[in-house]
């Protein structure tokens, strides 16, 4: 990983501080930008990061408006790389739309790897998955209504 402006995107999980430490250690000259929810206790990471981007709290950031706001804030930070904590479709898509050159995932067991799915593929697969989810929910809703 080259050293420049790295956005460390927070998700609820046990390894955020570990990820920041690891980034700090591997990229000592990089500007580390923590993208964290408004309620996140900044004291815990004060000595590890250079800048912060405050995001809507977790619940709010899951809807479309919150997601848009989060994405806009990250893009405004003009990072060259983004690191997320899970290789989920949602975070893949967010990182793909973040305007960064490189995207990485930092796993719970402490490994970095590159995320390289194309944005168009991510958008298409996310849309299809959502449609399938809505259909499954409709089936379950109908099944539950039957007595």
């Amino acid at each position: 990983m080259t050293t420049d402006r790295i956005c460390a995107f927070y998700s609820s999980g046990p390894h955020y501080v570990r990820m920041l430490r690891c980034l700090r250690e591997n990229c000592p000259d990089a500007t580390l930008v923590a993208a964290i929810p408004a309620s996140f206790p900044f004291d815990a990471i004060d000595d590890l990061v250079d800048e912060t981007v405050r995001l809507p709290d977790r619940k709010a950031s899951r809807d479309l408006r919150g997601g848009y706001f989060a994405l806009r804030s990250i893009r405004q930070a003009q990072c060259t790389q983004i690191v997320v904590m899970f290789d989920s479709p949602r975070l893949n898509l967010l990182s793909a739309l973040s305007g960064t050159r490189d995207r990485h995932c930092f796993t719970v067991d402490g490994r970095f790897y590159r995320l390289n799915k194309k944005t168009a593929v991510l958008v298409a697969s996310t849309t299809l998955r959502r449609l399938r989810g809505q259909w499954n929910f409709l089936c379950a809703w109908w099944g539950t209504r039957k007595s």
Binding site: P89, L128, R129, R130, L131, G133, Q134, N136, F137, A140
Partner: peptide, 12 residues
Amino acid sequence: LEHLGPDIKSGR
């Protein structure tokens, strides 16, 4: 159904 709805709708 109420509890699992959001997880099901996510498609994953």
